[in-house]
Design a protein around this nucleic acid. Structure first.
Length: 302
DNA sequence: ACCCTCCTGTCA
DNA sequence: TGACAGGAGGGT
């Protein structure tokens, strides 16, 4: 288990946190850590080291100032200020998607040693950000408009995310799709991955196999609350899945206590002590408590 | 709406 | 050696 966060460093070489797969809270944490470090610094150059990244037009970033670092869904986005594009001035948006194992490492000075799995480096007028990614699933892209980066999904941390909106989303042609699979759809809600989908459903007491379109109002209410709460708590914990500092600063992560069902097959449900079960949905593991997450009974009897 | 694939490291 | 981990885009 590793990957996902941004790293600060004090003494010339990179260091940082390891975490599991970056989902919304982890990306939010990366963004919050990175923003004050790179804001107002100028891009000297961006170098790509991995042909799998393709040929994004990173040259256009040269000389621009980082206005801010923000999160768009699960993407880390560097907003760069206006620069010359042809004969007019335009802003530029540099997006990094960490996918499975991507990390963004902050180096306050020139990197000393070669970093394994280094895929790209953005050198600023002081310091640099290195994109490291063992599995190489991550992506890097350059855009002239931030709307290009925004999909159709709603960010569940946004105030617009209400029970009413969630109800609408669930009814928008979800058909028989299971709620677990539905939560992973980035065209409905953005930012959830396998870990938080499992945790949220546990928190809401909903059977992951239940059809998304057939949740009852009470369940939708619990799902909404659970989504907001779990994400909020995770963000407050700086991502929750952070396990340790790479250079042993003595900080131990909180994710073992945080995750209640994910990767806990056979272990006791923290609520009822029933053994947590694992099933496979869409070729992905789903962990749940068969007792706390029972399907709502369709009350045909009286 | 489903299954496969991309990729590499870890574990049994 | 092979199963497994999974975000997301592509194919069917």
């Amino acid at each position: 288990m590793e990957a996902g966060s941004s790293l600060r460093s004090s003494n010339g070489h990179c260091e940082g946190l390891t975490s599991s797969v970056p989902e919304l809270p982890e990306v939010e944490t990366v963004v919050r850590q990175l923003d004050p470090l790179v804001r107002d610094r100028c891009v000297k150059q961006i170098r790509l080291f991995d042909p799998l990244l393709g040929k994004p037009r990173v040259g256009a970033a040269r000389g621009r100032r980082v206005v801010s670092v923000l999160r768009v869904g699960k993407q880390v986005v560097f907003a760069l200020d206006g620069g010359q594009v042809g004969h007019r001035v335009a802003s530029l948006w540099l997006s990094v998607h960490l996918r499975m194992t991507g990390r963004l490492l902050w180096c306050p000075s020139a990197p000393r040693a070669a970093v394994p799995h280094l895929r790209a480096r953005m050198t600023l007028d002081r310091g640099c950000v290195q994109f490291v990614d063992t599995r190489r699933f991550g992506t890097l892209s350059v855009h002239s408009s931030v709307t290009e980066l925004e999909g159709d999904g709603l960010d569940p941390t946004h105030p617009n995310f209400t029970v009413e909106v969630l109800t609408d989303l669930l009814q928008r042609g979800s058909g028989a799709q299971s709620i677990k699979t539905w939560l992973l759809r980035q065209d409905r809600l953005v930012g959830l991955g396998n870990i938080y989908a499992c945790e949220i459903l546990f928190e809401a007491g909903i059977d992951p196999a239940q059809a998304a379109g057939r949740l009852r109002p009470k369940q939708i209410g619990r799902l909404h609350t659970a989504t907001v709460d779990v994400l909020q708590r995770a963000i407050a914990n700086c991502g929750t899945t952070f396990s340790d500092f790479q250079d042993a600063r003595g900080v131990t992560g909180s994710y073992q206590q945080f995750l209640k069902v994910y990767q806990r097959e056979g272990r006791a449900c923290p609520q009822c002590r029933t053994a947590v079960r694992r099933i496979v949905q869409q070729q992905r593991s789903t962990f749940f408590c068969p007792r706390c997450q029972r399907r709502a009974r369709t009350c045909t009897l009286r």
